[in-house]
Amino acid sequence: MEAPVRLSGFVPPLCTPFTPGGEIDTASLRRLVEHLLAGGASALFALGTSGETAHLTAGQRRTVVRTVVDAAGGRVPVLAGVIDMTTPRVLEHARDAAETGADVLVATAPFYSGVHPEETAAHFRRVRDGAGLPLLAYDIPPCVHSKLPGDMLLSLAAEGTLIGLKDSSGDTNALRRLLVERHRRGLESVFSVLTGSELTVDAALLMGADGVVAGLGNVDPAGYTRVYELARTGDWKAAVAEQDRLAALFALVEAGSGMSGTASAIGGFKAALRLLGVIDCAATAPPLTALGEEGVGAVRELLVGAGLL
């Protein structure tokens, strides 16, 4: 048994560029796709946390997926986030994503109301069956207030509901146990595990993870591709050195002041992309605020220090 889509390597969660007027900047989004593919991306993940999906309208979501699919032109798979609070809402997004050409869906557990793992499992089954596309689970407890249990994930993998996991839980112990149990059950070929903990990608790959989904990879895709390739060839010393360089660059997520951590991180990514000439405008979706001049200056210094400017 093999998964319909086997994910590995560097999978960037694309930022969503806006015009100064708040519309989706499709020209900048197309340039971002080319920037990421040139940096070695093995797939493209639209409408994740870095893509501000929680702040977009349904129409904006459709525009993003349609643009990314068209720009990718079949060169790599396109993953589309269908993140929302309830199963009916997620199903609407999933059907839109399928109609606009996405290859894989990405969903969290339902949120706002607390859910039991059995309810979460039923949610994933309904989404997978309702849209007819492969489904990747997204574990991000700080945002949805529940942790995806490893046994549930692997059971859903064995039955064909899930093709993988993006693990942004930050729980390295749980990740290790999941990878050990995946091996014991012989599910490596049907269930990909991608780490979203972008400061410890080298450690996750050493444990057996298949790849990385890193927001900072919007800025430096080649860096995360190098970490993956070095790890795959067993050059762990070089992989650690590259991870250390990226860890220093990651300070750009803290460049903002007077704003939330999310706004500072996404604002930092977008400011960097504008300074690199990839996108035209660093605007963020309300209520998130963009970086001020001082923050942009800090981002510029970090780009220079990382050898990107």
Rank of each mutant, 00 (worst) to 15 (best):
L178A: 07
G217Q: 08
S197M: 12
W236A: 04
T108Q: 05
A265I: 02
T161K: 06
V304Q: 10
V65F: 02
S146C: 15
R75N: 03
T86Q: 02
Y228W: 15
V90T: 15
T200V: 15
L14M: 10
D210M: 10
E229K: 10
D220A: 15
L7S: 09
A231R: 09
F10K: 03
P88F: 01
A247Y: 13
T26I: 02
H183V: 14
T53F: 15
E188L: 05
D139S: 15
G39I: 04
A283L: 00
T200K: 02
D220S: 14
G256Y: 10
L309E: 14
T200S: 13
G160H: 12
M207W: 09
G307R: 04
A204F: 12
L7H: 01
S257I: 11
T195V: 10
M1W: 03
G160T: 10
T172A: 12
T49N: 12
V106L: 02
F18D: 08
R182H: 06
N218T: 13
A272Q: 08
T57M: 10
A248E: 15
Q60D: 15
G234D: 08
S42L: 05
R300H: 12
F250V: 06
S113P: 00
D202E: 14
L308P: 08
G211Q: 07
R185M: 07
T120C: 15
G297V: 12
G215R: 07
C281A: 06
R31E: 06
R226Q: 12
E293Q: 10
P221W: 08
D70R: 11
H35A: 02
R177I: 10
A38Q: 13
D151L: 05
S197L: 14
Y224A: 04
A3Q: 02
R30D: 06
L252A: 13
S50L: 05
T225V: 00
L29P: 03
L230T: 06
P117W: 03
Y138I: 10
G196L: 08
V213C: 14
A265F: 13
N218R: 12
C143P: 00
P88S: 02
S113T: 09
R61F: 04
G74A: 04
F191L: 05
D84I: 00
L206V: 13
E34V: 03
Y224W: 06
V227L: 02
G39K: 05
D103C: 00
F10T: 04
A72P: 02
R226M: 03
G101M: 01
D210H: 15
R89Q: 13
Y224I: 05
A3P: 01
L288T: 03
G295C: 07
G22R: 06
T262G: 14
D280N: 12
L153W: 05
L47R: 06
G101E: 02
A306T: 08
K147H: 15
R66K: 14
T16F: 05
A107M: 00
P20D: 12
L309K: 08
G215P: 11
G164Q: 08
L205T: 05
F10A: 11
G223Q: 03
L187S: 06
V106W: 02
T100M: 01
G9P: 05
A174V: 04
W236H: 11
L133M: 09
S146D: 01
V240I: 15
V144Q: 05
A271I: 03
G305T: 01
L302P: 05
L135G: 09
R128L: 04
L187I: 07
V5Y: 02
T161I: 11
R182F: 07
R126M: 13
R89G: 13
A174F: 01
N173A: 15
